[in-house]
Nucleic acid binder design. Structure first.
Lengths: 343, 343
DNA sequence: ATGAAAGCGCTAACAA
DNA sequence: TTGTTAGCGCTTTCAT
């Protein structure tokens, strides 16, 4: 009796079950199992199990040009905003039998090009993009290549592209409302780069919220930072303080920028929230352990990732491009120690 | 003139260059390019470029049973210790033309089994394991499956397995030396789970360092925590404080445990470093921004990831199992505000 | 309901 | 040096 050496293939299963490989294939594939005699099917499944047969996804992919593989592009995994996003995506993918190809662009457009090409050549079935800027040439390429894609936490200007985002406007509005309820009337804003949809969108929401509240919109009350980093936040905060505008509260475009504010506050001997109230955005991990704990807006990043993955796979499996809709998930405003009554 | 529709294949390139597909293959593959006439090779490359030819990695993999793909298993991407590790791995992989298949086990052994099987079936060329426990049945399976693997930040008991780790003993020794230089003689230790090599190893190093320094090793001075989490750290810290042993400093098995200590300190109205000095381990992101900033041991996680990936690829490309050596990278002790003179 | 046969795109042993 | 051939393991159309 000669068991074939090496991993058993479909041929081995077929031989063991006494059927043709084609039949074995049909029997083992849930999609086509109905087209085969139930008792034969059972025999095939038994043989497969007996031999410890595992289908070879590579061979299947070559034949079907589907890989059950999804690529994800992110700018920097060590930015604490991304791990929950990746995790949410990965969770859904693995549940549905897909595998995640993760690529970290390190914020470099060239690297991003290369990585995208690599992912495309590997025939990923779709892409989750966490790197999108408002103007992003790569998106056009991806669409042209016919690959389904979903943006997370970003939207695109130029192309109508499906995206999953948090409800930023609501978060900003809640921040302003909270501050005014504490008596603040002059609220400064530290904006993120206007090259990102979040940078622009949150700034617009800030202006909108001020208008709604009948608050003053003095020049010099809103300052743009060059990047979503602590350093850029510190620079912006200094510009704000040195700009001469009066204010009793600062809203930062995200928690990283708020971190920069903390640095400047201690550098200037200012106390928070006594001298100045501070609000962040994102609720990144451990930001609640800072002194004082940061009042901020919680973005459900894991949910966003999961939703994006679900949208993408639904489209992939329906065999069509993702619907160009933007899904907005609710955010949660969380009050902590960095905001207090004006005094 | 009929350009073939769809993506150009090797046949198209061959036809364009007026050679046989086999020749085109040899010409385009750096390994075999020497076996073909330089001028023919150039013609083929020109044709490939003209057509925008991109080799199909799936077809190549089916033929060669190499995928240029590496799997990585981690327990929880949202634990800040892992992103730098993943990033280090990813960086090296993409540089060398490999792609990372990331799988987050969510600390579940069942999920881990499933994910491993999925990765193996996808014929990853090797594995980076960040989930290893001292006793870890899965490792045996992987070795039995003949897959090259490297452990990161963990070692294994049962199997001789290649690993890349930080120099933990040195880190612990430096912590103890630092504390004694500040006058501390009674130093408590909050150990991580003994199921992990780091939990056990750091504890042993602590005992060793105390012995070397001629310091007292009272019972109740070392307490084991059930997990590497903030909550477990808090529980351990309470046990320590309520245990009756006297001490002026606490060393935590890692920064997450130290975070739990912060919670208990404020809960008990204790001030750090005035009432108690505290030392962590890992130097996780933002731990320097806490109040007080944590004195800790910096583990070069990105380097560890990069080194692991390099070892793995070297082995993969040499066509043999990874050498069962353990690479130890130096750590850096960083003094911050959580340690001070005993008083 | 099953068998036969072709082929996804590539590489590699063998021949010329 | 180049061409020929076969086949990696699977799915799927076409017959039967």
């Amino acid at each position: 009796m000669s068991e074939p050496a090496g991993k058993p293939t479909l041929r081995d299963v077929a031989r063991e079950a006494g059927v043709h490989p084609g039949t074995a294939s049909r029997a083992l594939n849930p999609e086509t199992a109905s087209k085969v005699n139930p008792v034969t099917a059972k025999r095939v499944r038994k043989a497969a199990k007996a031999l410890g047969y595992r289908p070879n996804p590579i061979a299947r992919s070559l034949r079907t040009s589907r890989t059950h593989t999804i690529g994800m592009l992110i700018p920097d995994l060590t930015n604490p905003m991304f791990p929950p996003l990746v995790r949410g995506v990965d969770q859904v993918l693995s549940e549905r039998g897909y595998t995640l190809l993760l690529a970290d662009t390190d914020n470099s457009p060239q690297r991003e090009e290369r990585l995208y090409t690599a992912l495309r050549d590997r025939q990923v079935d779709g892409l989750v993009i966490g790197t999108a800027l408002l103007q992003h040439p790569l998106l056009r390429r991806i669409v042209a290549d016919g690959l389904p894609l979903v943006l997370v936490n970003r939207r695109s200007d130029e192309h109508v592209t499906p995206a999953v985002v948090g409800d930023e406007a609501s978060g900003i509005q809640q921040s302003v409302t909270h501050l005014t309820s504490l008596g603040h009337r002059r609220i400064a804003y530290l904006a993120g780069p206007r090259t990102t949809s979040t940078g622009l969108g949150r700034l617009a929401a800030y202006h909108q919220a001020l208008a709604t509240g009948g608050l003053e919109q003095a020049a010099g009350l809103a300052v743009e930072c060059g990047a979503w980093t602590e350093e850029a936040g510190a620079v912006g905060m200094r510009r704000l303080l040195d700009g001469g505008a009066e204010f009793t509260a600062v809203m930062a475009g995200n928690d990283m920028l708020a971190l920069g504010c903390y640095d400047v506050l201690s550098e200037r001997g200012l106390s928070c929230p006594d001298d100045l109230s501070l609000v962040g955005f994102n609720d990144m991990p451990f930001i609640d352990k800072f002194t004082p704990p940061l009042t901020t807006v919680h973005i459900p990043n894991a949910d966003i990732g999961a939703e994006a993955a679900t949208m993408l796979l639904d489209a992939v499996e329906a065999g069509r491009v993702t619907p160009t809709k933007v899904v907005t998930l609710p955010v949660e405003f969380v009050v902590r120690g960095s905001t207090g009554p004006v005094r």
